[in-house]
Amino acid sequence: MVILLDPTAHLKLISWRSFDPLNERDLTESFIRVDPLVLRSARGRCRFLPVCRTYIAPADSSSSTRRSRCGTGGMFSCLKDKVGEVLVPGDEFSFQADDTISLSGPAKPEKVVCGPGLRRSGDRLLVSKSGVLRHKQPNVFWIDSQQRRYVPAKGETVIGIVTAKSGDVFKVDVGGSEQASLSYLAFEGATKRNRPNVQVGDLVFAQFIIANKDMEPELVCMDSSGRANGMGVFGGGGLLFTVSLGLVRRLLSPHNEVRADLEQLFPCELVVGMNGRVWTRASTVQQTLIIANLLQSCDTMTSQQRQQLFRRVQQGAL
């Protein structure tokens, strides 16, 4: 996906979530630049399944008739109290079933959907990443961490570096634990005779179609209708740098402040991969460097600090 940050450029972002319960994968948001017409078809062809893992408030398991009577209290309020606070691995929530036994009235199971950074262990809910607890209505909770290690997830678009050409596949480094494979036929308009021009060391913007913990991840540079849709090999120039995964998600979320601030500075091209790699190109080397350094420093800044810095850059301090 290429976002043109020219202030005149018009762009629209549509989001959806994917969460793979088998891999304990990030609850991530993937975005593509589409107009509403394309979106309808995109929904059909992209295999994003909103799969979530549900946690029911643990009632006393010894008898099935007993159910926690905490209703909207208990687990939910326990988590809700901590929304917006920084939690560290080892923090735990525990929910003890209420002691009173309901003989009348239907037992209402309480459901909480846990995203990345929260995991269940018995009747406890453990925090497994450090970060800020986030909440989304009605009952989704996750930890917003600034981790840098990328774990491939199906459907996510990433920036990869081609490391080897072997037979009919390219090996691509995406920053995960394993290199991904990319078939030379998985480019727009590629046939057995008409091979894409990809050299070792080139950058590709591609999407995962296979990503699970037991198999080698596989990338493609086109969507299911065979169009490039912004993916493919990068042209010359520009600079690649890495930021944290949290910042990448922030950059890609709709109505993002960082991006809005960046748009005020000067026209540039920006490609954001979900694996934390960002490629940027502006008219001069100096401007490209400014963009890269600004984004890298955004990781650890409050919005006020950032706006102050961006204002200074705009006034020509750098």
Binding site: G175, G201, L203, G237, T288
Partner: peptide, 17 residues
């Protein structure tokens, strides 16, 4: 584990810079 390879774009950009 292998190190992250250096892409051509980074190399060109660094030399140009």
């Amino acid at each position: 584990m292998k190190d992250t390879p250096l892409s051509n774009c980074e190399r060109d950009f660094l030399l140009k810079a």
